[in-house]
């Protein structure tokens, strides 16, 4: 049997808009993945610690407040510091195209912007998790 994809979803920063993250959580679950939603106002450290603890394939982060250029790099740093860069980091929110390109260059695997179907996220995660080689 194929291993189930495990995903940690989180909302970092002060933003409380959780409609998107909950929709994604439900869609990933319906697609047969295991989803852990951490809730609101998680620091990058809390997110990365939880991801390691839960042994997930990917971290999905939702930011609608405009603080994405601060929060994504902080999570990437934290992953590096904890030697966990094998965990896929993806995200979504109100993120302008230029920032999206820059974030993907920094190491965020994928950014989904408003209007993206959940189907896209499911497909992305299946592929990315399938080709992932976890560190021991």
């Amino acid at each position: 049997m194929e291993k189930k994809v495990r995903v940690l979803l989180a909302k970092p920063g002060l933003d409380g808009h959780d409609r998107g993250v909950k929709v994604i959580a439900a869609a990933l679950r319906d697609a047969g993945m295991e989803v852990i939603y951490t809730g609101l106002r998680q620091t990058p450290q809390m997110i990365v610690d939880a991801a390691i603890q839960e042994d997930v394939d990917a971290i999905g982060v939702s930011i609608l407040s405009g603080a994405h250029m601060t929060l994504f790099p902080a999570i990437l740093e934290e992953l590096k510091a904890k030697d966990a860069t094998d965990i896929i980091l993806f995200g979504g929110g109100i993120i302008p195209d230029d920032d999206k390109t820059e974030l993907e260059k920094m190491g965020v695997a994928k950014i989904f912007t408003p209007g993206a179907p959940t189907e896209e996220a499911i497909k992305f995660l299946r592929e990315a998790a399938g080709s992932r080689s976890p560190k021991e």
């Binding site: 920063g13 002060l14 407040s65 405009g66 603080a67 250029m69 601060t70 929060l71």
Partner: peptide, 9 residues
């Protein structure tokens, strides 16, 4: 807690 959020929204 405000890092990166000042004046944003």
């Amino acid at each position: 807690q405000s890092l990166g959020e000042v004046g944003k929204c």
